[in-house]
Write a protein that binds this DNA or RNA. Structure first.
Lengths: 233, 233
DNA sequence: CGGGGAGTTGAAACGCCTCAAATGAGGTGG
DNA sequence: CCACCTCATTTGAGGCGTTTCAACTCCCCG
């Protein structure tokens, strides 16, 4: 990316900042989005809730992730985004964003790359919920998060932060909190992970990948579109 | 959409046609896509297969649907698309498509709308697999297909074609074929559907929606971006 | 007339859920 | 500094939804 591209991005992201407390909605289903939200620090999630209260987490957002580029084309949010930890969010005015995309094709392409990877990740989650066992599903989630965190420099050695409660893991994997707990014990027992005090350690990533049937191709990490995150620009 | 827009579209879609037999791959995981595929007639599906053979259907494509606008940005397919019935596919050269999108903002917007609705649908499937029971899940799928078919004029009264085997329904809903069979019987028993000889009848759509906890908002059918399908242009 | 795929049925097993209660780890006010 | 709250995690026991395996029927097609 050219220096000029970066400058354009920086100008965009420094415009408006917003802070959210943990568990607070960044944007809620039914709202008409005015801006595009860029996570600058903290973890967030996309979720949907059924009328009777059942909640499904659909995606995790890490620093540098954009929630719903261009959803405003759909007029109205069909899901919600919530903070999992305290959050700093950059609000990108959509007009300014569109202008930047027009003037800087490389940025535009990187943003589309992000949107498409989001979609690919959603597909992989569908596969997990449809075809993977609880054990494989949790392994797969840990693999995915570890790969994504590593790509933005948020891992050290074989470990990373994991600021999620078991209830949140349950909502993401479609399991009950109780069964998440037991599955975590199985994973620990198998020596595949250590998880304590919000820190995840993966002693043997290869083994965990095999257990999860994890193929990182859907993250498309090997592509030029990568690296548009807040921490690199 | 202006007459000029339509003309541009027609020129695009009439360029190259391709026929696929049922069960044939339109494009396979790992391939580098050269064109964007537009379904002109027949049903197709997007699917992923795990190393050990388990297969998950991720989406159904109906006439007028575009498979993976812009996935070429990701270089390589991370999933496959297969014909469920004999298929006629329009192959849109990606350069021509990009040019059209640049020159016809309204078409561009409609195409983005399609991409975003795809993503929203994938999210809803994730919710189904994560949180809905077999009974609700099948109901939901039938609601979705019926709404989509109605939007493209492929329903009459309260019925539509449903050229899917129970095994395919199983792969889509994350259930076993046996359980799909039993669930269909339950649905029939509850008077929610009739399904015979590839024809689905929904005597009381309202009731089916309630059983499915179906909220059509994620299809965003009430929007101007709609109606770019092959049958209307 | 034979073969194969789609649909159907039964019985047993298993994975995961629900309910309920106990333990542990902060955080606050007295 | 302790009592007490709340929230996250853990454990046990029983039940249900769904899977698996196997067999059988039906129908279309060769």
């Amino acid at each position: 990316m050219s220096a000029e591209d970066r400058l354009a991005l920086d100008q965009l992201t420094t415009l408006r900042l917003r802070r959210c407390g943990a568990r607070e909605d960044v944007i809620s289903e039914g709202e008409v989005p005015r801006d595009v939200n860029l996570i600058l620090s903290g973890w967030a999630c996309r979720y949907k809730q059924l009328e009777d209260g059942r909640r499904q987490i659909l995606a995790f957002f890490l620093p540098g992730d954009i929630c719903d580029l261009n959803v405003y084309i759909l007029r109205e949010m069909d899901h919600s985004v919530a903070a999992l930890t305290p959050l700093v969010v950059g609000e990108l005015p959509r007009d300014a964003l569109e202008e930047v995309m027009q003037r800087h094709p490389r940025i535009a392409k990187a943003l589309w790359w992000e949107t498409l990877v989001n979609a690919a990740t959603q597909r992989e989650w569908t596969v997990s919920l449809g075809k993977r066992s609880a054990f494989e599903r949790m392994s797969h989630l840990f693999c995915e998060l570890f790969f994504r965190l590593r790509a933005i420099g948020f891992t050290s050695e074989s470990q990373c932060e994991l600021p999620l409660t078991q209830a949140e893991l349950a909502d993401a994997t479609g399991l009950s909190a109780v069964h998440v707990n037991r599955t975590l014990q199985e994973l620990r027992g198998a020596g595949l992970i250590q998880l304590k005090d919000r820190v995840l350690r993966i002693p043997d990533l290869r083994a965990l990948k095999e257990a999860a049937l994890f193929n990182p191709n859907y993250l498309h990490l090997d592509h030029e579109g990568r690296g548009l995150d807040a921490n690199r620009s």
